[in-house]
C-alpha cells in the first residue's frame, strides 16, 4: 500500500467504518440511558422539573468557590483544554471545509496562526493534566487503563494535527493520513469510553436539576 493509497483508504472506507461505529454507538448508548428512566415521583411538585433541569445544565459549568479552591488545577486545566479542543476542532478552516463538504454547514474560521497557538497551549495542558494524574496519589488510585486510553486518543489527533500542519518528519500525505486515522480511532472508542461524557454530562445535569427543581430547591 503506497502512501496515497493509505490516505485514500483513511479518507474513504476507514472513515465510513469510524462514522458508523461512532454514530451507532452514541445513539444506542443515549437511548439506553434515557430508557432506564426514573421512578414516578408521587409527591406533589413544588417547582418545575424542566426549568430546574435546564438551569442546572448551564449553572454546573461554573464551579462553586469551595470546589475551585480545592481543585484549582483540575478546573483551570480542564477549561483550557476543552476550549482548546473546541477551537482546534471547530474553528480551523480545513475542518470547517470538511463539515461543509459532508453536511453543507459552514461558519467563519479563526486565522490559522491563532488556531496553531491554541493547539500548542492545548497540547501542553493535556500533558500537564497527564502528569497531574500520574503524580497525584488519589488521582492515580482512581485511574484505570481506560482513563489513560481516553487521554491518549484525545491527545493523538492534536499532536498529529500539529505535526501535519507544520509537516515535520514524514511526507505530508502520510502525516495527514495519520492525523485522520487518529481521529477515526477517537471516533471508534468514543461511544464505549468515558468520552461519552460529551453527551451524558448534560443528561446527568438535567436529571440532577430536574430532581431538585421538582422539589422546589436549588440544585
Amino acid at each position: 500500500m503506497t502512501e496515497t493509497e493509505f490516505l485514500l483508504w483513511v479518507r474513504g472506507p476507514a472513515l465510513q467504518i469510524a462514522t458508523i461505529v461512532f454514530v451507532l454507538g452514541i445513539v444506542a448508548r443515549i437511548l439506553q440511558m434515557v430508557m432506564l428512566g426514573r421512578k414516578a415521583n408521587l409527591a406533589e411538585a413544588r417547582g418545575s422539573a424542566l426549568a430546574g433541569g435546564l438551569r442546572t445544565m448551564v449553572t454546573r459549568s461554573v464551579p462553586d468557590k469551595g470546589t475551585f479552591q480545592r481543585s484549582t488545577f483540575t478546573i483551570v486545566s480542564g477549561y483550557i483544554f476543552h476550549i482548546g479542543l473546541f477551537v482546534t476542532i471547530f474553528l480551523f478552516a480545513p475542518h470547517i471545509l470538511l463539515v461543509d463538504e459532508v453536511f453543507g454547514l459552514s461558519w467563519p474560521a479563526l486565522p490559522t496562526p491563532v488556531v496553531d497557538a491554541t493547539a500548542v497551549v492545548t497540547i501542553i495542558t493535556l500533558l500537564a493534566v497527564l502528569i497531574h494524574r500520574l503524580k497525584d496519589p488519589v488521582m492515580r488510585f482512581l485511574s484505570g487503563f481506560s482513563d489513560y486510553l481516553v487521554w491518549l486518543v484525545t491527545f493523538l489527533p492534536l499532536l498529529t494535527g500539529y505535526i501535519a500542519f507544520h509537516r515535520i518528519g514524514l511526507s505530508p500525505t502520510m502525516l495527514i493520513a495519520l492525523h485522520i486515522l487518529s481521529v477515526e480511532l477517537l471516533m471508534v472508542l468514543f461511544p464505549f469510553t468515558k468520552l461519552m461524557h460529551t453527551f451524558s454530562l448534560f443528561i446527568a445535569r438535567y436529571y440532577n436539576g430536574a430532581i431538585a427543581g421538582y422539589k422546589g430547591v436549588h440544585s
Binding site: L7, G12, E101, V102
Partner: peptide, 10 residues
C-alpha cells in the same frame, strides 16, 4: 480538497 472524504459519509 485533500482532507475531504472519498465515500458517502452522510
Amino acid at each position: 480538497a485533500i482532507s475531504t472524504p472519498t465515500e458517502d459519509i452522510p
